[in-house]
């Protein structure tokens, strides 16, 4: 099962230009799956990175615009797209010129492939 999902995410990584990492974690930031290109972007693995998103997403949900789904963070050299698919959190790290719209369009395709991981996390 994991191999299939990993293969699928690896395919996605090559489809989107300038995308370096796709990481699936649980809400505490525990890595469940990670595919990456040969690029050193270890900041995405920092222990504080994912829980900070979880908190920010929770706070953003209080703005009265409905549940927060995605947070896009643009930095000088990188962009980070984080998707709230509780109990999972998806993190995409790409270059500053990476096609953000393409990453966002993947959201609906991903759901079917995440079902098994979601189930495993819920059972744990």
């Amino acid at each position: 099962m994991t191999d299939e999902v990993k293969k699928y995410f690896n395919g996605l990584l090559h489809k989107v230009n300038g995308l370096y990492i796709i990481q699936v974690t649980d809400r505490d930031g525990v890595p469940l799956l990670r595919v990456s290109q040969d690029k050193n972007v270890d900041f995405a693995l920092m222990p504080s990175f994912i829980p900070t998103f979880a908190t920010a997403s929770e706070q953003a949900g209080k703005l009265g615009l409905g549940r927060n789904k995605v947070i896009i963070s643009m930095y000088s050299n990188y962009q980070v797209v984080q998707m709230n698919k509780l109990p999972l959190i998806l993190t995409f790290v790409g270059g500053e010129h990476c096609n953000t719209g393409h990453i966002l369009a993947l959201e609906h395709q991903l759901d079917a492939h995440l079902e098994d991981i979601k189930l495993a996390v819920n059972e744990a």
């Binding site: 489809k15 989107v16 230009n17 010129h97 990476c98 096609n99 953000t100 719209g101 393409h102 990453i103 966002l104 369009a105």
Partner: peptide, 28 residues
């Protein structure tokens, strides 16, 4: 119309704004 990040700047008529990213990827 999409910007250089593939994000939709505006849409009119029967078109899904999510198409902006994929349209730009095809073009690239």
């Amino acid at each position: 119309l999409a910007n250089r990040q593939g994000l939709c700047l505006g849409a009119k008529g029967q078109i899904n704004p999510n198409v902006s990213g994929i349209g730009m990827a095809i073009s690239e």
